[in-house]
Amino acid sequence: MSSDSCATSGTANETASSAPEPEIGPTRRSLLWLKSQLLVKTRREAKDLLLKILFAITTLIVILPFFLIVIQLAVTGLSGLTLDLFTTFPGASLTGGIRNAIVGTILLVLVAGGVGIPLSVLGAVYISEYSPPGRIRSTVEFASDVLAGIPSIVFGAFGFAFIVVFLNVGMGLVSGGLTLAFMMMPTVLRTTQEALRQVPVSLREASFALGATKWTTTWRVTIRAAFPGIVTGVLLAIGRVMGETAPLIFTSGNSLTTPTSILGPASWVASLPFTIWAYVSDPRPYLQVKAQSTALALLVMVLAVDVVANYISRKVTRRLV
C-alpha cells in the first residue's frame, strides 16, 4: 500500500466513523453535475454530449408553441378581457359581451356530463367489477378505444343525421349536449376503469369478509376508494368537450341570448368555441381582437380544469405509491 493511500485512508476513517459527511448545497451540487456533464475526454463522450444537447433543443422546440400562443393571446386579448365581456350579452353588430357563450358552454357541459358521466362510470363499473376478463371486457374496451379515435366532425355529422334529423329533436341544447356526451364517454370510461383497477383487491376482500354483497362492496368501498381517479377522468373529459367546435356546428345552433326552452329554436345555444369561430370568420377587425379575448377566456377555463385534474391525479398517485 502506498503512503499516499494511507494518508487518504486516515481522513476517510474519521469522516466515516464519526457523523455522516455533511451534504453539499444544492447550488454546488448543480454546478458539480453540470461540470460532470460537460467534461469531455473521448470522441464517444463528445458525441454523447452533442446528442444530449440536441435532445434538449428538441424539447425546447416542442414546448415553444405553447408560450407563443399564450403570449399572443395575452398581448392582444387581455385588453378586451373586461368584466363587461363576461356579464353582458352581445349587442348590435356583435359589440358587447359573450355572456351567451359562457352560459351556453356551461349548459352544454351540464347536459353532456349529465348523460355521459353516469353512463360511462356505470359501464366501467360493470367491466371492471362484474365481468371476468374475456370477450365482453375486450369488446367494451375496444369499442371505447374506437370511439376515442373518431374525429369530432364525424360526431357532428352523426349528431346532425341521427339526433337532429332522424329523431327530429332539432338543433339546440339537447342535440349539442348529447353529441358532446358521446364524445365524453370513452375518456370517462377508460379513466374510471383505470381508477377502479388501482383499488387494491384486499380492500374488496375485507368488505366481503364482513359479509357485504358485491353490490354493497362496489358502491360503499370500491367506488369510494377510486373516487379521486374518477373525478380526474371526468374533469379531463369536461376540459376536452368544453373546447369542441366541430360537433356543435350542426347540432347546437347559435344564439345571441341564453336558451329559454329545452326544445325548438328557443333552445338554440351559443358556446365559446363556436363564438370564436364566428368572430374570426367575420371581416370586422374589432371582432378579430374579440375572438382573441374570447379564446383567452376559453384557454384559461380549459387549462384551469386541466390543472385541477392533474393536481388531483398527482395527489392520488402519491397516496397510493
Binding site: 493511500s5 485512508s9 466513523s17 455522516p20 459527511e21
Partner: peptide
C-alpha cells in the same frame, strides 16, 4: 480497494473497506 466509504445522501452505506 482502499478505504472505500460510500453514502446515499446522509446515509453511510459502506465504511472504510480495504
Amino acid at each position: 480497494v482502499y478505504d472505500l466509504s460510500t453514502w446515499f445522501g446522509p446515509k453511510a452505506v459502506l465504511k472504510n473497506i480495504t
